[in-house]
Nucleic acid binder design. Structure first.
Length: 675
DNA sequence: TGCGGTTGTCATTCC
DNA sequence: GGGGAATGACAACCG
């Protein structure tokens, strides 16, 4: 059996571990000093690192490094940043693990805020800091400290664009109750030990990818505890068992969710869910981890790790995930009803998927499929159920799905929307969805065409021998009645599946009556049109979701451009103020050199010249060499005539001027923190 | 019972 | 000019 030539299905494989491995490799490189292009000086110590890593983790480093391409760059951190705080954050950047003690948690928190470190949500600190303090500090006080620190830090260091500040819900009485999506806060689990304020080194583990799952662990050999860190979407401390299941915890937004965008929006990101699922499994599995500190509590004890999807705004495609639907819940309800989840928490959580499929699979076997189809289907299925056994090769999920206990194929109808880059009828994975009982049989494409053993089986064919149970069926019965009336000498299935040449040849050979001929042509026409209508609708929906994605992308770009414009305006204003102050100081001096410098500052601070510097492409007529030559002449004249003692002072002023102009031109959105 | 989504069918247009 | 594909419109069904 072979896959037909015209099929051009495109599949996507996304590794769940690649990012983690890359991060680990980068950490090893850093430890060996390989490819480190950045030296960070903190207090009296210096750290070697990769600028790209730090820039991707920290707003501060991003602003400092984004526009520098110099190798071996040295960045001196503000005096507010300490070695104690930065070292932990540096390790976090490369390992996604934050080691801290109650002595240094405040320092780390302060440095993290100062440097704008991502993925270290304040919820973590707001819970940990009160807990790690000697009981005297509440989360509210922590917030207050944060706010005070923020105001102080803002005045000294303009580094973070989006450094989180304290929320507005500090007066709610219950400090740890999450209020809204903007103010996630940590809530101690009812199962957590009430006092964790002991001298322990703890580890905040955001690995891998700094995402997906946030869990809190105590170091190896120490007492274990778990924090239920409630995100904005986890309103209650009591967690239903269903929420412990990674599938069931996915919130649906409606029955008619944008299922199809699972492909258009996510780019066919089915396998990407494997990663998320893997993380969720990670939180309930007792499988030994490479991390010695990792000790996942038993799910039956009510412990669970916080998923970052509860803390971060939903990604564009997150809500479009086909599993994030009520259909998905129905799937899992079906599985749960079949006893799949009954053993949750007993080391069998997702090992039972195989059992699930075994239970759901038809007992009478399934139709044959090509090796390619089986492999693709199995891999796709593993995207949903990573532990899916290879034994399922013989019983594909879709077949199982279609014969689920509920007997309702609509539970899985979202699978039909998975875009594999081809029309549904062309998709080897979905092709049999429309046919009951897997009527597709083997054979090469040619024989399939000529014999009518096609995947495109019309309802007429599939229900030919079934009873009429609805009005739709009554239509089929009418057709069936016509079939009986015309008494075709060949199977109706062949009509729509044959090539035109074979169809005409068959008509010629069979010597049909006019009634038979009309009926056969009508059936063929309607069948073709039906498939065409399906393809047309699919294309339309695809187009809609593509346009929606484009709109989102453009909106994001617009927002970024607006932010850049605001930053540029601020920089311009600051530059003007500096020049104005300098001009005032120079106006007190009546020396010739001072007059020259005043002329220079007027020239530089003029809007015209500033615009020349900032937008030379927009105003080429003003960006010619005349202005630069004029400025250079000014500078040369000044420098050559200045007296020695004034020259030093004025030199520094000019250097400052030039540096400011250069900063405004080359780094408009990165105000110097150290200035 | 009304409503929205889905699907099949027909008519028309385009290639 | 005929056939196939694409597509808008309509109707029926279903949840």
């Amino acid at each position: 059996m072979s896959v037909d030539g015209p099929r051009t299905s495109v599949f996507t494989f996304e590794s769940a571990v690649h990012s983690h491995h890359v991060l680990r490799s980068l950490d090893k490189l850093r430890q060996k000093g390989i490819l480190c292009d950045l030296k960070v000086e903190v207090e009296s110590r210096s750290f070697r690192a990769h600028s790209s890593v730090l820039a991707s983790c920290s707003d501060y480093f991003y602003t400092r490094l984004a526009n520098h391409s110099r190798p071996n760059l040295t960045v001196s951190l503000p005096v507010e940043v300490t070695v104690e705080g930065f070292e932990a954050l540096l390790q976090f950047a490369y390992t996604a693990k934050l080691h801290f003690t109650k002595e240094n948690i405040l320092e780390i928190h302060r440095c993290a805020k100062l440097l704008g470190f991502h993925n270290l949500d304040k919820a973590c600190f707001e819970f940990l800091i009160p807990k790690l303090s000697d009981g005297g500090t509440t989360a509210q006080e922590v917030k207050q400290n944060n706010e005070n620190q923020s105001s102080h830090e803002k005045s000294q260091a303009a580094c973070g664009n989006n450094i989180p500040t304290g929320d507005q819900n500090s007066d709610t009485g219950k400090d740890n109750v999450p209020q809204d999506a903007e103010t996630p806060c940590a809530t101690p689990s009812t199962d957590c030990p009430p006092d964790v304020s002991r001298d322990k080194e703890m580890q905040l583990d955001l690995s891998p990818l700094h995402t997906k799952s946030t869990s809190y662990h105590i170091g190896a050999g120490q007492e274990q505890f778990c924090l239920q860190n409630c995100g904005p979407q986890l309103p209650s401390a009591s967690v239903a068992r269903a929420e412990l299941c990674p599938f069931l915890s996915m919130s649906g937004t409606g029955d008619n969710e944008k299922l199809h965008s699972a492909t258009a929006g996510c780019g066919g990101d089915i396998l990407a869910m494997e990663e998320e699922l893997a993380m969720d499994v990670h939180c309930v599995s007792t499988e030994p981890s490479t991390d010695k500190d990792l000790n996942i509590p038993n799910i039956t004890e009510g412990h669970f790790d916080q998923h970052e999807r509860d803390l971060i705004p939903p990604a564009d495609c997150r809500h479009l995930c086909p599993l994030n639907t009520t259909e998905a819940r129905n799937v899992l309800d079906s599985i749960a009803n079949a006893g799949i989840l009954s053993d949750i928490g007993t080391n069998q959580v997702f090992d039972t998927t195989e059992q699930a499929f075994s239970d759901l699979a038809p007992k009478d076997g399934v139709a044959e499929r090509s090796t390619v189809e089986r492999e693709v289907a199995e891999h796709l299925a593993k995207g949903f159920w990573p532990n899916l056994s290879s034994t399922l090769t013989e019983q594909l999920p879709l077949d199982s799905i279609e014969h689920s206990a509920a007997g309702n194929s609509s539970d899985f109808h979202w699978l039909k929307h998975l875009d594999l880059g081809a029309a549904p009828d062309d998709c080897p994975f979905l092709r049999d969805l429309s046919s009951n009982g897997g009527q597709m049989s083997g054979g090469d494409s040619l024989s399939k065409e000529d014999t009518g053993d096609s995947s495109c089986i019309s309802p007429i064919n599939s229900r030919e021998n079934s009873e009429c149970e609805s009005d739709v069926d009554s239509v089929q019965c009418d057709t069936n009645g016509q079939i009986q009336e015309v008494d075709l000498p060949f199977p109706v299935e062949q009509i729509s599946s044959m090539t035109r040449r074979a169809f005409l040849q068959m008509l010629k050979q069979q010597r049909l009556t006019p009634e038979q001929l009309e009926f056969v042509q009508d059936v063929r026409r309607r069948s073709k049109n039906r498939v065409a209508a399906q393809r047309c609708r699919k294309r339309k929906i695809d187009c809609i979701y593509r346009l929606e994605g484009d709109i989102k992308k453009l909106m994001s770009e617009k927002e970024k451009l607006m932010q850049d414009r605001n930053q540029l305006r601020l920089s311009m204003e600051e530059l003007r103020q500096n020049l104005s102050g300098l001009r005032q100081n120079l106006s007190m001096d009546t020396s010739p050199q001072s007059e020259q410098l005043q002329a220079l500052t007027r020239y530089v601070s003029s809007d015209c010249h500033t615009s020349v510097l900032l937008t030379p492409m927009a105003s080429p007529s003003l960006a010619g060499p005349d202005q630069e030559a004029q400025a250079n002449t000014c500078l040369d004249a000044f420098l050559s005539d200045s007296v020695a003692e004034d020259a030093a002072a004025l030199d520094s002023s000019i250097a400052f001027l030039q540096d400011s102009v250069q900063t405004a031109v080359t780094q408009p959105s990165a105000p110097e923190l150290t200035e």
